[in-house]
């Protein structure tokens, strides 16, 4: 379902050339829950950016849902991101001037769903994260944990095949972090493939599969 073969990513400046990913090989099956750990600068986030089609790569091949995405243009990459991938960011990344309803609505509008369809999906996804009563609130009126739940609702509203989470509990206290983790497990149980980058070994243990990234290469734990 997600297959990276010998993927390379090099960051270049005038003076330095940094190999963020070196012959990176990974295969993730449908319904998997993969925790990605590794030291800072190991290439975890670069992997996640490439997996989420946020960033291009310099060598190797990447197949997403059986489709080679190596040479797609911006329009097609954006469309694939929108249809197949949901993102959860460490800093929640909600748009501060939009209420919860409009925040969850953002990817659905780019999907082109009609108004009734969007409304149904927004209400269902906010209901699932327990925030349906607060859809007219602004993000600033919510706690960190609640904001991350909204971000999860936004990621799920389009019913993506993949959920990519970058340190989803990094800005939360333990109680909130556990609550978010439970939510992710529920989502995974419902069939969504999750790849989660984390520093937290305890959280990583709760995933079905753990991989370790070091010096731009992956090893199974």
């Amino acid at each position: 379902m997600l297959k990276m073969t010998d993927v390379k990513k090099v960051f270049r400046t005038d003076l330095v050339e940094t190999h963020a990913l070196k012959d990176f090989n990974l295969q993730v099956g449908e319904g998997d829950f993969v925790a990605v750990t590794g030291p800072s600068g190991s290439g975890k986030t670069t992997f996640l950016n490439i997996a989420g089609l946020l960033e291009t790569f310099d060598g190797g091949t990447y197949e997403l849902d059986g489709q080679d995405v190596s040479n797609l243009n911006d329009k097609h990459r954006s469309q694939l991101r929108n249809e197949k991938i949901g993102f959860i960011f460490q800093g929640f990344n909600l748009i501060p001037d939009l209420n919860l309803f409009d925040n969850v609505d953002v990817p659905l509008r780019y999907r082109g769903f009609n108004s009734a369809e969007r409304k149904k999906r927004i209400e269902n996804s906010l209901e699932m994260v327990g925030l349906a009563q607060r859809m007219k609130h602004l993000p600033s009126q919510l706690s960190g944990g609640q904001q991350q739940r909204v971000a999860i609702a936004r990621a799920l509203a389009g019913e993506p095949r993949f959920l990519l989470a970058d340190e989803p509990t990094g800005n939360l206290d333990t109680k909130m972090a556990n609550s978010v983790m439970e939510l992710l497990k529920t989502i995974n149980d419902a069939g969504t493939t999750i790849i989660m980058v984390t520093h937290d070994a305890d959280l990583a243990k709760q995933a079905r599969r753990n991989i370790y990234v070091r010096d731009g290469q992956v090893s199974e734990l």
């Binding site: 954006s78 929108n82 249809e83 990344n93 748009i95 990817p107 780019y110």
Partner: peptide, 16 residues
């Protein structure tokens, strides 16, 4: 800038 990046990550293309 960050918001634009978020919109792009959520599926907006350059024309959007």
């Amino acid at each position: 800038t960050k918001q634009i990046g978020i919109r792009r990550a959520l599926g907006a293309n350059k024309y959007d």
